[in-house]
Design a protein around this nucleic acid. Structure first.
Length: 481
RNA sequence: GGUCCCUUCGUCUAACGGUUAGGACGCCAGGUUCUCAUCCUGGCAAUAGGGGUUCGAUUCCCCUAGGGACUACCA
């Protein structure tokens, strides 16, 4: 037995990447990397019905986007069927498994009966004591069969989850579950135990929905005489209502978050904090920092509710941390609609777009919001209610006078002087010198340039828009009043 | 119904059996400010309930309650 650190992420290829998948994959990755171990990708595709074409490639791509890569794999279980055949024979020979010829109908009826009687639904072990000869005979006759695990009939099975300690399961509650299906393909329980052993997996980190099946796993290891890996069952994630994350609410799939403009570092940071905590109080951590700090003992055990507000906060932080050119690149798809509104070459230039992004970024919770937040940068004719131009207790005449005043003052600026610093300093000094109310002037100016209640400052707008457009928009506003 | 797991502010979470029960998000208030946002200050807010063990329980044990998972020839 080697003491190498080897972990595996073992999804079934059923379609989109669920947030829970990413959570598990992330913890597997963090555990492996923090201990200097290897991470293996294994595709559990033993359910042919649910298999989705292209799902594996997509999953690898999405995980890579999140920064999760694999050292080995993907191994695919349906390509390893001879291996499972070999090991099931060993179990059969040891008398730890048996052939079962019960039909689906019989099992369904049995289950219904048991449930009607409020009995726990379990296989009645009808085939458990079939003789070897009898079984061989029926197989030779072409009867369909499955292979079941022979569970102990009494006593209890003690299993260990490293996070929770020992847990006892009464043997009487254990079912003789199926190891090999009638199509000859193993079930998850059997394939994963065989693979974990052969792939020398040292630590299994998986969702705690697997906790009830741990006895089955452990019993298989015992039947084979193998040493089981250490098991860590990770807390499950729920939505605000306490239920499962769902496709309908759009909070289930990683692809949805990605499309909305969530950054991978935000999602990873946020997810790492669901069921794990660093030792210090710093919460904003890069994946590299998390790896450095990650310790298995700091994994939690209680289920966590997925709180979108905190994710938004993290995403905002990471958006503000990205260098502007990168951020612009990421925002491009969300700006396309706005760019279609203008024919100006200047507004399609990098110089202009960088300014737009720099003004929008501190207001973004996710990148997809940038379109709606920056529309007024691209419109020639802003649509807004005339009253919006009027500052608080001022009136239409006041607003009109302010704007005319500003127009005259700004017209005097040379193109060279038209920049943020100058505009701000000079206009503010001018207002002060002439004892003009700041709000009386700046509010209508800002509205004239944006048509919005909330926006960047008038100086930032004027600087970004340029002298010509600024004066045009002031004129339009004056004419409205 | 059965088995198993879980339970600290609304949420994510911290706290060798001894802390004014800490941090973060959100919320509220104040500051900066023409607006919104950012940023800075401050504030509100929790050990599910009941029994034990102990000089002392958030922490250990039991019961109750609540939540969750599993209970397929799905993973």
């Amino acid at each position: 037995m080697s003491n190498k650190i080897r972990l595996r992420f073992a999804p079934s290829p059923t379609g989109f990447v669920h947030l829970g998948n990413l959570h598990t994959a992330l913890f597997d990755f963090l555990a492996a990397k923090s201990m200097g171990g290897k991470l293996i990708l294994r595709i559990e595709d033993t359910d042919q019905e649910r298999k989705v074409e292209g799902a594996v490639e997509k999953m690898i791509e999405v995980l890579a986007w999140a920064g999760i890569t694999f050292d080995e794999g993907p191994y695919t279980q349906t390509e390893r069927l001879e291996i499972y055949q070999k090991y099931i024979k060993e179990l059969l020979n040891k008398g730890e498994a048996y052939y079962c010829f019960c039909s689906k109908e019989r099992l369904d009826n049995l289950r219904e009966e048991q449930q009607a009687k409020k009995m726990p639904p379990r296989y009645d072990r009808a085939c458990r004591n079939l003789s070897h000869e009898e079984a061989e005979k029926r197989i030779a006759l072409g009867e369909k069969f499955v292979i079941r695990q022979k569970m102990p009939l009494e006593g209890e099975v003690v299993v260990r989850d490293e996070l929770r300690g020992d847990t006892k399961f009464p043997a009487i509650d254990l079912d003789d579950h199926i190891l090999i299906k009638s199509d000859g393909i193993p079930t998850y329980h059997f394939a994963s135990v065989v693979d974990d052993h052969l792939m020398e997996i040292s630590h299994v980190l998986r969702g705690s929905e697997w906790l009830p099946s741990l006895p089955k796993n452990i019993l298989l290891y015992q039947s084979f005489g193998w040493t089981p890996p250490r098991f860590y069952h990770l807390p499950l994630m729920h939505n605000k209502e306490g239920g499962k994350l769902s496709k309908r609410k759009g909070d289930a799939f990683v692809e949805d978050f990605r499309a909305k403009g969530y950054l991978p570092e935000a999602l990873v940071n946020f997810l790492a904090l669901l069921g794990w905590h660093p030792e210090g109080e710093k919460e904003i951590l890069s994946i590299a920092e998390i790896i450095k700090e990650f310790k298995l003992k700091n994994i939690g055990i209680s289920p966590a509710i997925f709180d979108i507000d905190k994710l938004d906060y993290f995403n905002g932080m990471y958006i503000r941390q990205r260098p502007l050119p990168e951020l612009l690149e990421l925002c491009q798809p969300f700006l396309a609609e706005n760019l279609a509104l203008t024919t100006s070459d200047y507004k399609k230039s990098n110089e202009f777009l960088i300014k737009v992004v720099s003004l929008a970024r501190e207001r973004l919770k996710n990148l997809s919001e940038i379109g709606g937040l920056t529309k007024y940068f691209f419109c020639d004719n802003l649509e807004y209610k005339t009253e919006l131009l009027v500052w608080r207790k001022s009136n239409a005449e006041g607003a009109k006078a302010s704007l005319s005043d500003l127009k005259n003052y700004l017209t005097e600026f040379s193109e060279e002087d038209w920049n943020l610093k100058n505009l701000e300093e000079k206009v503010v000094a001018w207002l002060k010198d002439n004892e003009k109310g700041v709000g009386d002037y700046l509010w209508p100016l800002r509205v004239a340039l944006t048509g919005e209640q909330a926006s960047p400052s008038p100086f930032e707008m004027a600087d970004t828009l340029g002298k010509t457009e600024t004066l045009e928009k002031i004129n339009l506003a004056i004419n409205k009043l």
